[in-house]
Measured scan of single mutants.
Amino acid sequence: MATGGRRGAAAAPLLVAVAALLLGAAGHLYPGEVCPGMDIRNNLTRLHELENCSVIEGHLQILLMFKTRPEDFRDLSFPKLIMITDYLLLFRVYGLESLKDLFPNLTVIRGSRLFFNYALVIFEMVHLKELGLYNLMNITRGSVRIEKNNELCYLATIDWSRILDSVEDNYIVLNKDDNEECGDICPGTAKGKTNCPATVINGQFVERCWTHSHCQKVCPTICKSHGCTAEGLCCHSECLGNCSQPDDPTKCVACRNFYLDGRCVETCPPPYYHFQDWRCVNFSFCQDLHHKCKNSRRQGCHQYVIHNNKCIPECPSGYTMNSSNLLCTPCLGPCPKVCHLLEGEKTIDSVTSAQELRGCTVINGSLIINIRGGNNLAAELEANLGLIEEISGYLKIRRSYALVSLSFFRKLRLIRGETLEIGNYSFYALDNQNLRQLWDWSKHNLTITQGKLFFHYNPKLCLSEIHKMEEVSGTKGRQERNDIALKTNGDQASCENELLKFSYIRTSFDKI
């Protein structure tokens, strides 16, 4: 039985969820670079991206490699990797027998973001014989899940209580170790020597080791999670996991709180800001991140802002960003909400898709409305799209047979046209069989910064309504002859009103 693990408890099935942008060198404390989270699957090609990484700022997932063999891993080693800020997950990587050479110096898994409450997941690794993470000293947050690894031993010899604050939620089941077939031998045991430290858990006094050649490092209890030197002297209180010299914040392997210019500090002093819960960055760093993602459509890219001495992905609820200094300031009234469309555009074809934009005031991208039916549609669209004030790209209304009016965009005031449909149009209306009105132009103002209007096959939309939009939106004169079809717009509506004058002759039985 794995020490510190839980057996036999019912657990939810383990679901495996399925960018080499360097964020800056980590400095003297770390020998390499800070790398983003990685999802490495199918083959070993991307694994080489770990070569210079000291910190993975995010998670590391290595999974679904069915053609790899043990010899493929023999020359692979990433000794610079010290810390993973989120979680480490391995799933069905064939041929991998140990992690001792792959990650010989991995010391800390912070667990800032977890995989279903777990910071370390080893699942269905069919050839893994031992973990071998002999320098792993601290899992700051989260638990361990090690399950269905039929060859995995050296679990009962690990004292997880020396690595985690609590072992109650560890789930370590259905491994070879369960069948008591392992016969784990710690260093020196074969020669009758006791080389590794022994600890007591559940009444068992057991030597602690990761492999037959690597003991588990056990520091004096007084050192807590700070770690200790090879001689057993406690590291500085700002260290986490390990250090090369005692009581020196510049000799830590990793930091308990924050890293700044080669030393570990309790908090980031001005003019620095907390970033990702582990390091200090200056304003320029946060500003660069903001600008890199301002026009990016890459998933996970955030326009970072500053709030409460932190550089964070977005302002919290009730705050909006001051564009001059990136500071989050309290909103006066309802907060603006910028919604970034991942692929640059979004099609609204149902109430469900409209709900995804609920509360958005600025759309960074283009909207395509293609709704053919739905219950209580006008009210639903207004509830979900009615706060949109600005669209950076274009607005396209296409084959939306259920629409009679666009009044559900009740606050839309600006279409920038930074991206144009077919390279020309910022407003595009095609084949809307029941569209009769755009907006009530006596109450609604709309500016279209650039781009043209396109109207074709809107049989109940009168040309007068379209011409009014040209005047109000500032697009009059931009359109070419064929942009607004004269014969297919309003051709099934009563669009022309003329005053009919009647004269009559009164007659009676005795007068003409």
Results as ranks from 00 to 15, higher is better:
28 H>D: 10
30 Y>L: 14
32 G>R: 14
36 P>F: 12
37 G>P: 06
39 D>S: 09
41 R>S: 15
42 N>D: 10
42 N>C: 10
42 N>P: 02
45 T>L: 13
46 R>L: 07
46 R>Y: 05
47 L>P: 03
48 H>A: 05
48 H>S: 10
49 E>M: 08
49 E>F: 06
50 L>W: 02
52 N>P: 14
52 N>A: 08
53 C>K: 00
53 C>P: 00
55 V>I: 13
55 V>Y: 05
56 I>L: 07
57 E>P: 00
57 E>H: 14
57 E>F: 02
58 G>W: 00
61 Q>V: 06
62 I>P: 00
65 M>I: 03
65 M>P: 01
66 F>G: 09
67 K>R: 13
67 K>L: 06
68 T>K: 13
69 R>T: 05
71 E>P: 08
73 F>R: 05
74 R>Q: 04
74 R>K: 12
74 R>L: 02
74 R>V: 15
76 L>F: 10
77 S>Y: 14
77 S>A: 02
78 F>E: 01
78 F>C: 03
78 F>R: 02
79 P>Q: 09
80 K>R: 10
80 K>Q: 06
81 L>V: 03
82 I>H: 06
82 I>W: 13
83 M>F: 10
83 M>V: 05
84 I>Q: 00
84 I>A: 00
86 D>L: 00
89 L>T: 05
91 F>P: 00
91 F>I: 09
95 G>K: 04
97 E>A: 09
98 S>F: 02
100 K>H: 15
101 D>N: 06
103 F>D: 00
104 P>R: 01
109 I>F: 01
109 I>D: 00
111 G>S: 01
111 G>I: 00
111 G>W: 01
114 L>W: 02
116 F>V: 03
116 F>M: 10
117 N>K: 06
118 Y>W: 09
123 F>Y: 07
124 E>H: 13
126 V>I: 06
130 E>K: 12
131 L>F: 10
132 G>T: 02
134 Y>V: 15
134 Y>L: 08
137 M>L: 08
137 M>G: 11
137 M>W: 11
139 I>D: 01
140 T>C: 08
140 T>W: 03
141 R>W: 10
141 R>H: 11
142 G>K: 01
142 G>D: 01
144 V>Q: 01
145 R>T: 03
147 E>F: 09
148 K>M: 07
149 N>S: 10
150 N>K: 09
151 E>V: 14
155 L>M: 11
156 A>Y: 15
157 T>R: 13
158 I>E: 04
158 I>T: 13
159 D>G: 11
160 W>H: 01
163 I>H: 01
163 I>Q: 03
164 L>S: 08
164 L>R: 06
164 L>K: 12
168 E>F: 07
169 D>Y: 06
169 D>W: 06
169 D>Q: 13
170 N>D: 08
170 N>K: 08
171 Y>V: 13
174 L>K: 14
174 L>C: 13
175 N>D: 14
179 N>G: 12
179 N>M: 06
182 C>S: 12
182 C>K: 14
182 C>M: 15
183 G>W: 05
185 I>C: 06
187 P>L: 12
191 K>I: 13
192 G>W: 14
194 T>W: 12
197 P>L: 10
199 T>A: 07
199 T>G: 08
200 V>Y: 13
200 V>W: 04
201 I>V: 14
202 N>H: 12
202 N>Q: 10
203 G>P: 06
204 Q>V: 08
204 Q>I: 03
206 V>C: 00
206 V>G: 04
207 E>P: 15
207 E>K: 13
207 E>T: 12
210 W>R: 07
210 W>P: 02
211 T>E: 15
213 S>F: 00
214 H>W: 14
216 Q>M: 15
216 Q>L: 12
217 K>F: 14
218 V>M: 09
220 P>V: 04
220 P>A: 02
222 I>Y: 07
222 I>E: 14
224 K>T: 09
225 S>F: 13
228 C>W: 01
229 T>K: 05
229 T>P: 07
229 T>L: 12
230 A>S: 09
232 G>W: 05
232 G>C: 13
234 C>L: 01
236 H>K: 02
237 S>W: 09
243 C>M: 00
243 C>F: 00
250 T>K: 03
255 C>L: 00
255 C>H: 00
256 R>L: 07
260 L>P: 00
260 L>M: 03
261 D>I: 04
261 D>P: 04
262 G>A: 04
262 G>S: 10
262 G>T: 11
263 R>A: 11
263 R>C: 05
265 V>R: 07
270 P>S: 12
271 P>Y: 14
273 Y>F: 15
274 H>S: 11
276 Q>A: 09
278 W>C: 02
280 C>M: 00
281 V>P: 00
284 S>F: 02
285 F>I: 03
287 Q>E: 15
289 L>I: 15
293 C>F: 04
294 K>V: 03
295 N>E: 07
296 S>G: 11
297 R>W: 06
298 R>P: 08
301 C>F: 08
302 H>V: 06
306 I>P: 02
306 I>G: 08
310 K>A: 10
313 P>A: 06
314 E>V: 04
318 G>Q: 13
324 S>V: 15
324 S>L: 08
324 S>A: 15
332 L>F: 15
